[in-house]
Design a protein around this nucleic acid. Structure first.
Lengths: 136, 136, 136, 136
DNA sequence: GTGGTCTAGACCACA
DNA sequence: GTGGTCTAGACCACT
């Protein structure tokens, strides 16, 4: 589990940290019950202040993805999504998909990209293969 | 083409304006060659500072979606995506899809959401002339 | 609306600020739509760092009691309680009432205290008089 | 008398222990003169450090609810409330009641909740001998 | 002029 | 040794 931070990005550092941890959760690099590195250690590893990492962890806690513990540190938990999640997610997806669409990427390709990304998630459990592509 | 702005949202107003124009482009409410309302008029219509609208237009210009002329105002252009667009878009899509995935939404449902959204774009599947549609 | 902070209390400063704003909301000193003082001004008035006030405001935002705005600052909103609120509140009430009970305060007196406190809330609207006490 | 500890809660373990003992006192599961389990045994039973239990017991001792002897262990005592107790309790009750009030719960319902909780204390209304109940 | 982000570092609470 | 609190102050984003 490695983080690649871009200090000059317009995306806040704490958001980058949060995003990459979410991606790590999806790809199975992190699983429920796994501990996250201590705030201060992760901060030292990437040369940011521990407050920045703290804010990222706090975001993840509010989203129900990790739990912060005095002794254990942060552990992955993955609570179920609240009822309003679906609608808010759809609105963000609408904009993201629209961006690709208006830049001329054919819908089939956009869907293929999404399928490929989804297939890269949780490789160990192999939920299902969403692509109609051939294998073997 | 109507904008629904939420002044109390955590999403900046200029971003909301930009997002809705992008969505309008995708759904075909706006097409290449169409003029956008003058900055000051749009600002007056929605009670925001014209600097805010200006920033939204500037974003769209940087993305190659509109062109600003001092006389004609803003017109939709839809330049082809630069080579780096695809990769950057994929990274943002990865995070968005990961969020849904880790919250327990099955990949099939996520894909179904994406498909539904894409089908709502450019009614009647007439998404063949995304470029070159405006001019003599 | 005045805040009385006790720097030496075991209750964190940001919690004290949050608590007193909640109390101010209940007594009608603050009403939905009212603006809260700017973070930095409130911090300066009470000699604390603006981060401390920021954390208090952020708590209130998470509870749905205020909304933070870039331009307007913080305004009171009072969203409805989430479904899990009632049960969590009851557990905290159980402990608080038990404390008074085990210290020998008769239940009637405890209820009288609660009634008096509730009657001190929202004085302008005069919800109802919960005490059976006589008034001339 | 059983304790239900939530190690992942944001409430410190020692506070949870203290709270549940207070609740046990209120419901009559523990009465003045009753012995509390030895610190080390309670710690072992619930898999927490004995320092944690020690801190909970110390809190209760400071509150005048138990007395610690080096031989007898901890016994329930229920000293009368110090003069400052009433005022401090009222301030905490004000905040708790205000929270329910500002979240829209009607005062009648809040009072009903308090009444129900108080009625669950010390079964059969035998709350007359809160002190002096322990002897030869 | 508002809130937001980030850094730097001290001290404390919890287990 | 973990996270939490608080201070101090710089710089940026939004309107």
């Amino acid at each position: 589990m490695l983080l690649y931070l871009q200090p000059d990005s317009d995306v806040p550092l704490y958001q980058q940290i949060r995003d990459q941890i979410v991606a790590g959760l999806a790809t199975g690099q992190l699983s429920p019950g796994d501990p996250l590195p201590p705030i201060r250690q992760l901060a030292a590893d990437f040369g940011v202040h521990f407050h920045t990492v703290n804010k990222a962890y706090d975001l993840l806690r509010q989203e129900g993805l990790i739990r912060l513990h005095r002794r254990t540190g942060a552990v992955v938990v993955c609570e179920p999504a609240p009822p309003e999640f679906r609608g808010q997610w759809r609105e963000r997806a609408r904009v993201l998909l629209a961006e690709a669409f208006v830049k001329g990427i054919p819908p089939e390709e956009i869907l293929a990209e999404c399928t490929a990304l989804l297939n890269s998630f949780q490789p160990a459990n192999a939920h299902s293969d969403l692509s109609g592509g051939a294998s073997t």
